[in-house]
Design a protein around this nucleic acid. Sequence first.
DNA 1: ACGTGCTCCTGTGTGC
DNA 2: TGCACACAGGAGCACG
Length: 279
Amino acid sequence: MNVFGLIVSIPRPTGYHPDMPELPDVEVFRRRIARTTLHREIERVQVRDPALLHGVDAGGLERALQGSTFEGTSRHGKNLAVDVSGGGVLVLHFGMTGHPETEEPGLSDRHVRLVIGFSDGGRLAVVDQRRLGRVALADDLGEYAARAGLGPDALSLGPAALRGVMRESRGGVKATLMDQGQLAGMGNIYADEVLFQARIDPRAQAASLDEVAYLRLHRRLHRVVRIAVERDADPGRLPRTWLITHREDGVPCPRGNGEVRRFRSGGRAGYWCPACQDG
DNA sequence: ACGTGCTCCTGTGTGC
DNA sequence: TGCACACAGGAGCACG
């Protein structure tokens, strides 16, 4: 290894993903939008990328929003809804790389896909580099969730309900956790995190776990989401004992047991600690 | 009813 | 310097 090899091998923060909107991230988005955009008259709607619109065109979105105000927010899984005073909700899904900008958005940013301008000069923008996000209208978020075939929000499931979902599944525990039709909100990153903290082998069949493991799964899911939201889902502020900042094959386990391993399922990379996750 | 693999999409890093 | 390719992963789809 030469000097250049040393330089390029300086570890960049692994697992740092500025945009990976899963349940905790979307909850942070929701709170920010609730803090900053309510009760302000919508003056203009600028659709910069119609590809994000689902079931509505630019004109329809403009008619639904213009002159109205946002009056409240809700979240279901990874979907965020903003109540529109004229009726209905604006539903936002951030795909893999999306996020809302509520401060002074850099409007020249070419990744800005939607700008909602308020009459007081403020704005709400949707930024989405990879254009996998979605903007839609619905009567309410429950109606949208039903139409989209989403299961209950992951946080709304009690221990017995989560156990029920797992016991009825014939798939893997990680795939079931990420199945938005069973429970909505878990993505690749947080599914790995919850399984790591619950000490469950991600390759296990969902129905094969013992009762204690289901309880751990439920408890850890809630705890992981709560702490992540408290810390604005900012990986840099999450506990260093979490897997999320150690998503790299061969690095030491953040809990001090062996090494983190990469595995693949369904074309997706996952990470786990074989020494910790033996349940 | 599962998993797998492909597609959408853009940006980054790596190998030749 | 460029070209090809893998990878990132949310979600929907065809396939076996």
